[in-house]
Computed example of a mutant assay.
Amino acid sequence: MRSLHSILLVDDDETTNFLNKFFVKQLDPDLEVEIAVNGQEALNYLENLSPDHAGGMIVLDINMPVVNGWEFLNAFESKFPEETHQKWVIVMLTAINSEEAISKALAHPRVTDTAQKPLSDLKFRALINKHF
């Protein structure tokens, strides 16, 4: 089983990012947590990582300005090699508990899991334990 070294939070809501980072740091103060406020910032972050970066978890909101979650996924798939794809667990965030949204997200080949907003320390713990 892989170990978790970093989390990339991708959401345009500053409060959500602040709380999510707080929850993650409560679980593991040594975990690297980065924030991107849209999909383009997340893509830029990933492009600038060294090739030996271990990867981790991307917590990706669906609805964002500039580049939304779906656009990010398509760009991630086309811009990065399979080796990079394998390094990241992508969790798609949904604001509503809709079977349609969850099914669409899980149908994407790069989405590993979904989670409903708001997240909490318990939800993060469950996601980390499930995938790492």
Rank of each mutant, 00 (worst) to 15 (best):
K123P: 00
K79D: 12
R110S: 10
V24F: 05
N20E: 08
L49Y: 08
A54W: 08
G56H: 03
S120L: 07
V67F: 13
E41M: 15
Q26P: 04
I7C: 05
L9F: 08
I96V: 14
N20T: 07
L122I: 09
S120N: 05
S103I: 05
L60Y: 04
S98I: 08
E41L: 13
L127M: 15
A115Q: 03
L46T: 01
L46F: 05
N17W: 09
D52E: 15
L9K: 01
N68F: 10
T15V: 12
H85S: 07
V111A: 05
N20F: 07
A115K: 01
M1P: 12
K87I: 02
A115T: 04
L27Y: 08
M1A: 14
T94W: 11
A75Q: 14
P118R: 10
N20I: 09
E32K: 05
Q26N: 14
T84M: 15
E14I: 08
A95H: 03
D13R: 10
N48V: 04
V89D: 00
T16Q: 03
V66K: 10
K123S: 11
E34M: 12
Q116E: 11
N17Q: 14
H53A: 06
A126S: 09
L119W: 05
W70D: 00
D13F: 11
A101N: 07
G39H: 04
F80K: 05
H108N: 04
A105G: 11
F23I: 06
R110V: 03
P65S: 15
P109M: 01
V89M: 00
K25D: 04
R125A: 12
S6T: 10
K25F: 09
E32W: 01
L8T: 01
A36K: 02
F124I: 03
D30T: 15
A105N: 06
E34L: 15
F18M: 14
S120Y: 13
A126C: 07
H85Q: 09
N38G: 07
D12W: 09
P29A: 15
T114S: 13
F132S: 12
R125T: 08
L127C: 11
L49P: 01
T15W: 14
N48I: 08
L19D: 07
A42Y: 04
V111Q: 02
